[in-house]
Design a protein around this nucleic acid. Structure first.
Length: 499
RNA sequence: GAACGGGUAGCUCAGUCGGUAGAGCAUCGGACUUUUAAUCCGGUGGUCGCGGGUUCGAUCCCCGCCCCGUUCACCA
């Protein structure tokens, strides 16, 4: 005999395997194919409560039901037993009794485990202790669970397990399910608002021969048949504008972007963006629409315009504060970065404002840095910053009357950047110059500077009507509306290092 | 990539000033026909993240590595 070494986990699985074999041995199928429910659990509870309030004597209320769900709790009392089963709509107690169920059927309860899916038929009434309960006259095992689920009381808190095995997180922590429901609501509400305004949802390539539309490092992949390098898209922007060139007037896309960059509480390598483009619109008109869109979504998800975020109460009531970027810098950082466009002078001003700048940073980058460090930390309540320097806005149109600036805005809520928008640059000659400027930065070692996309310029040469465009980071917005401190809390399967 | 914190039973956590570890829940056996963190009695379960070093002896001390979290850097 060799010494047997069972880990607990193996023991648990072995026990369940033995039960599985017993179930099969008596001719039952532990993995059923379908089950006809009379309703979901939530609906059954509601129906019972309605019957109860319609009854002269509420204690007499009873409603027949056939329900199914995962068994999450089991309390054995010898000749009777209580189980809690849960489906997506709620939880209900099921009462089993040897007399009504029959001794044989009652005995098979011993082969059930927490985590199993069962279906049960009977009547719903209320126990003496006031618990709405399905008194089962029959039951069947629908799916055997072969593994122990996380403990019911403390749930699952180990962050790594929560992310790597999100299904366990969802089973163990109802509030996580709620977070992801809110994310779904958010996207539905946004899509509904856009569709209601006449925007058409289009799909543009995820595989790009030239990564464009943002300043970011891409993931590189390879296509075998064409034997060519392709990039996972960092933004859909340039393709959506091609749609406008072709004659679409209002388009949007809600889909994934991929950026080969760091991972932290606000960044996942793949993330979801909504981008929209609207012909004949400029950034000021779009700012109004953006405000409406956000408020519509916020109301749909939170039920109002006030909601908590990380200890603050956000009030999204319109109108939102609007402030020029350079005014905000003057106000919060105490320096006038608009007074110069010289890199070194700007660096000196940044230093005066207490912001460390890298020698490699150009003027635009310095402005961006001062904004992030000195302005954004003040932007808890919804605020639009607008009129950004041209150096950091290569796809935005120059501001009327001030070619140093672009007609661009961003909204911040809860100190998070929520969107980026501008009057789209549609002058192909200007666009080429901007790309050339980006190329110079690339040559200076900035790997994130944009590539020259000749086909995009060709498209602009064909003529793109005046257009305004907007991008909203869906994950950031989901964080905001679910009071989540980390982006991983709002992405079902965030990227972790492969084991 | 850097700093700090963490990794002990299936889950949630204690603990060992260095002498190979405990609790609750889960699980297994038993009692119980209205419980709901059911209760009561008894039991199983751990290469204490991985690999080296020091030591009579390491889960604990030292070194390296892996994974996670937070902050920073990069970015949205």
């Amino acid at each position: 005999m060799t010494e047997e070494h069972h880990s607990t986990e193996q023991d648990l699985k072995r026990h369940r395997m033995e039960k599985l074999e017993r179930i099969r041995a008596r001719g039952d199928e532990p993995f059923k194919y379908a089950f006809a429910r009379s309703s979901g659990i939530g609906a059954a509870r509601a129906a019972f409560e309605a019957a109860e309030s319609a009854c002269a004597d509420p204690a007499e209320a009873k409603v027949p039901a056939t329900l199914a769900g995962r068994m999450v709790s089991f309390r054995d009392h010898g000749k009777s037993a209580f189980a809690d089963i849960r489906d997506e709509s709620g939880r209900i107690q099921v009462y089993f009794n040897a007399k009504t169920l029959g001794d044989e059927a009652f005995a098979t309860l011993a082969d059930l485990d927490l985590g199993d899916f069962i279906g049960a038929s009977g009547e719903v009434h209320r126990t003496r202790k006031g618990e709405i309960t399905l008194f089962a006259t029959s039951y069947e095992l629908l799916t055997k669970s072969m593994r122990a689920l996380p403990e019911k009381y403390h749930g699952l808190t180990d962050v790594e397990t929560r992310y790597r095995q999100r299904y366990l997180d969802l089973v163990a922590n109802p509030e996580v399910l709620d977070t992801f429901r809110k994310r779904v609501q958010l996207i539905s509400a946004m899509r509904a608002w856009l569709t209601g305004r006449g925007f058409l949802e289009v799909e543009t390539p995820m595989l790009h021969p030239i990564p464009g539309g943002a300043t970011a490092r891409p993931f590189i992949t390879h296509h075998n048949t064409y034997d060519s390098e392709l990039y996972l898209r960092i933004a859909p922007e340039l393709y959506l504008k091609r749609c406008i060139v072709g004659g679409f007037e209002k388009v949007f896309e809600i889909n994934r972007n991929f950026r080969n960059e760091g991972v932290d509480t606000r960044h996942n390598p793949e993330f979801t963006m909504m981008e929209l483009y609207e012909a004949y619109q400029d950034y000021m008109g779009l700012m109004d629409e953006t405000e409406e869109l956000f408020v519509a979504v916020i109301e749909a998800v939170t039920g109002g315009t006030e909601f908590p975020y990380q200890g603050d109460v956000i009030d999204a009531t319109r109108p939102w504060k609007r402030i020029k970027l350079f005014d905000a810098i003057r106000e919060y950082a105490g320096v006038d970065l608009e007074s110069t466009r010289d890199r070194d002078e700007a660096a000196a001003l940044a230093k005066k404002a207490g912001v460390e700048v890298d020698p490699a940073m150009g003027y635009g980058k310095i402005v961006d840095e001062v904004m992030s460090a000195r302005v954004v930390p003040h932007l808890t309540q919804p605020t639009f910053l607008y009129d950004y320097p041209i150096e950091i806005s290569p796809l935005a149109k120059k501001k009327r009357g001030n070619p140093a600036l672009t007609e661009r805005f961003q909204a911040f809520i809860g100190k998070l950047e929520m969107c980026n928008a501008f009057s789209e640059l549609n002058d192909p000659i200007d666009q080429r110059e901007r790309f050339m400027d980006q190329l110079k930065q690339r040559e200076r070692g900035d790997e994130e500077a944009q590539h020259l996309d000749e086909d995009f310029i060709t498209a602009l040469e064909a003529g793109m009507p005046p257009t305004a465009g907007l991008g909203i980071g869906i994950d950031r917005l989901a964080m905001l509306l679910t009071d989540s401190a980390s982006i991983r809390e709002v992405i079902l399967f965030p990227l972790l290092r492969p084991l």
